[in-house]
Design a protein around this nucleic acid. Structure first.
Lengths: 201, 201
DNA sequence: ACACACATGTAATTGGTTACATGATTTC
DNA sequence: GAAATCATGTAACCAATTACATGTGTGT
């Protein structure tokens, strides 16, 4: 409880890239840490207000883009400090909850085809995610290497890639096992249901 | 919303292994799906009541173990059906949130040693987790292979193992990169701070 | 003129953890 | 007789998503 993770993502993102609106912050989060972190507007806007009240960020009425209702934010030195403190605190992993694995685990209660389609879906998601990450990696390597944060960004990216590759490898083996299982079931069905062909030799 | 995942873990666990108390259910969850799913008592007990009210499980006053305040539960045919339906519904992955990666991503804002210790901690956790899973796998392969659910349990186990292995491999590379980074920093500090040694040849 | 992206926000609801409280039974 | 484990529960609190509501600017 009372972890306020949302405020720290926002703080961290603004530290890297200041003068962003709530809307932009969300986009940036999606495009940078999106594969391992998500934030909704319902979380971002209230958090921004609280961060301003706490003096960790400031709202400026904008640099060049003067659009009605547009509000840009940046970190204050205080905010920067708080961010650094938070980063240094040992991370805590929240209780794991993987619905995909849970459904697979209970796979014996349903037809093999159900588990197969779960895994197929899993594969597709992983493949497209992997392509996105590789694309991001390719792009970043070009024009991004000038930023001081770059090595760290690459690190998290590579983590994602390695996990996805492992997932995909695993899924191939799992799928093979399940299709064999299904085949066995089908053949046993045939054996009991089908009328044995009369001797036709 | 309204996903009620907790009820389905409980339903699924009771389907595999009936006649368990809330307390036991939690233990079973921990020991079987624990590495990818967690439930707290504050969730389990209220959920059990609701499941009884909905007719998806029944409470029996116990088989042999007649202990005061002890309440055993089992699934009803209805519960079994609902479970199967739920399993067949495409899984939904909840928004990812990995505090470890987030802190790493912001690593440029702190000393390299901070990120290094995060990764060290990550490695330790992964190593002990991996050992637990391998131990579980070893045990199961012996006496567990008789259960019809066995192949599915092994599947999820193997998933965990592959992810952990990938994580550990990645962490070695990441650590190497960071220690090099730290060394460069140290040497540049030395270069500016230290008094150049006078010619001592 | 229309659609789409930009932009901000709130209310309702839920899902969940944590901490607290209590007591029985077993084991040493 | 003390400690650990078994066993059940509730209250407080929080973090978060979703859906709703509203309006501006840009491009076609």
């Amino acid at each position: 409880m009372e972890r306020k993770q949302s405020s720290f993502v926002i703080l961290g993102i603004l530290a890297i890239h200041p003068n962003q609106t709530g809307y932009e912050i969300r986009k940036t989060i999606e495009q940078s840490v999106g594969f391992f972190w998500g934030e909704s507007y319902g979380q971002i806007y209230p958090t921004l207000k609280r961060l301003v009240a706490d003096g960790l960020i400031v709202a400026s009425v904008s640099g060049s883009n003067t659009r009605a209702g547009r509000q840009e934010y940046s970190t204050t030195p205080d905010g920067e400090l708080r961010l650094q403190e938070w980063i240094a605190v040992p991370y805590r992993d929240d209780p794991p909850r993987n619905e995909f694995l849970l459904k697979l685990f209970f796979g014996n209660d349903v037809a093999p085809s159900v588990s197969i389609s779960h895994i197929r879906r899993f594969q597709e998601k992983n493949r497209s995610m992997l392509m996105m990450l590789l694309e991001l990696e390719r792009q970043s390597s070009g024009h991004g290497s000038q930023f001081p944060g770059f090595p760290f960004w690459m690190m998290t990216l590579k983590f994602g890639v390695s996990q996805l590759n492992a997932s995909l490898e695993w899924s191939e083996a799992a799928l093979k096992m399940l299709t064999e299982m299904e085949a066995r079931q089908d053949s046993s069905l045939r054996a009991t249901e089908a009328v044995p062909p009369s001797g036709d030799s």
